[in-house]
Amino acid sequence: MSSLSYIDALPYYDKQLDDPSAKAAAQALIEAELRKTPQINDDDERLPRTIEVFPKSTELSALLDGYPSKPIRGIDTSKYQPPTIGEEPTLDELEKAEKQSRIGEGHMALRIENTSILSSHGPNAWLIRNYQLNSQLTELQSSLNNLKENVTDVNRSRRVFQEDTGKHLSKLESRWQDLIGSTVQLEMACKAMEGEVKPLRRKHESLKEEVESLEKQ
C-alpha cells in the first residue's frame, strides 16, 4: 500500500491547527518524536568527508588556519627586506646577509615577472572568466526559476486537490451526520412503538383469558 494512503491531513483545507491548544499539542508530539529520533554524530560515515581546499600547499594552509573564526595571519615579509649589518660584521653575518639579499632579489625578480605576465594575459583571462561565470550564473538562475515554477505548480495542484477533497469529505460528513440523525430518530420511534405495544399485548392476553373463561362456562 502506498504511503499516501496513511495521510489523513489536508493542510490547505483543515483549520484545526488554528486552535492554539491543538497547535501546542501537535508541537508537543513533534518534539517527542524528535527526542526519540537518533542523532547523527559528526564522524558518521554517511556525512561527507572534510575536503582540503589546498592539500598541496602547506604554507597557504597554515596561512588560512582557523579561518574564518580567526583573522588571517599576515605574510612574514622580513625575509624579503634588505639585510642590515654592523660596522665590523663577521663572516657568518656577511654570508647570512648575502643569502638574504639573494632571496630578496629572487623574490623581486619573480614579482616583476608575475606582474609582466599578469599585465599581458590578466585582462583577457579576467574577461574570459567573467564570461564563464556569467554563463554559469544565467544557467543557474534559469534552473532556479524552473524549480520555483515547479514548486509553485506542485503547491497549486496540492491546494486544488486538497480543497476539492475537503469539499467532498465535508459532503460525506454531512451525509453521515444526516444518516446518524435518521438512525437515532428511527431508534427512538422504535422504542416509542415498543412502549405502545407492551400495553396492547398485556390487554390482548387479558382479553384472551376472559374469552377462554367464558368458553368454559
Rank of each mutant, 00 (worst) to 15 (best):
L186A: 11
S143K: 14
L60A: 12
K15S: 14
L10E: 01
G122F: 09
Q217N: 11
H168V: 02
I117P: 05
K191D: 03
D153S: 11
R129C: 02
T37W: 04
A25T: 07
T37M: 10
A192M: 01
A32E: 06
E215K: 14
H121Q: 14
D18G: 10
E173H: 06
P55M: 04
S3I: 09
D42C: 11
E194F: 04
G195W: 02
S206C: 03
K99Q: 06
P48Y: 05
N134H: 04
D153M: 09
V154W: 10
L214Q: 10
D153Q: 08
E59T: 07
Y131T: 03
R158F: 03
E31W: 01
Q81Y: 01
I72D: 12
K198W: 06
S3H: 00
S21T: 03
E105Y: 11
G181Y: 14
D14H: 15
T37Y: 02
L10C: 00
D153E: 08
V53R: 13
S170C: 07
E209H: 08
Q185P: 00
K208R: 15
K167S: 12
Q141C: 01
P82G: 00
V53I: 14
V197N: 05
E31C: 00
G181D: 15
V197M: 09
D43L: 08
K36W: 00
I180A: 12
R111K: 15
Y67R: 07
R129L: 03
E105W: 01
K148A: 15
K171Y: 09
P71T: 13
Q185N: 05
K191W: 00
S213D: 14
G66V: 09
S119F: 09
Q185R: 10
Q185K: 12
Q27M: 11
S3K: 02
L144V: 04
E215A: 14
I117N: 10
Q177S: 14
Q100M: 03
K56C: 08
A24Q: 12
P38L: 09
S119K: 12
S2A: 10
K15M: 11
V160Q: 13
Q100L: 04
R35N: 06
L144S: 12
Q16F: 14
T58Y: 06
Q27A: 13
E149F: 07
A32T: 00
Y6E: 02
I103D: 03
L127M: 09
K198T: 11
S101W: 08
D178A: 15
E93Q: 15
G86N: 09
I180E: 07
S157M: 08
T152H: 08
A192K: 01
S2P: 13
D14W: 12
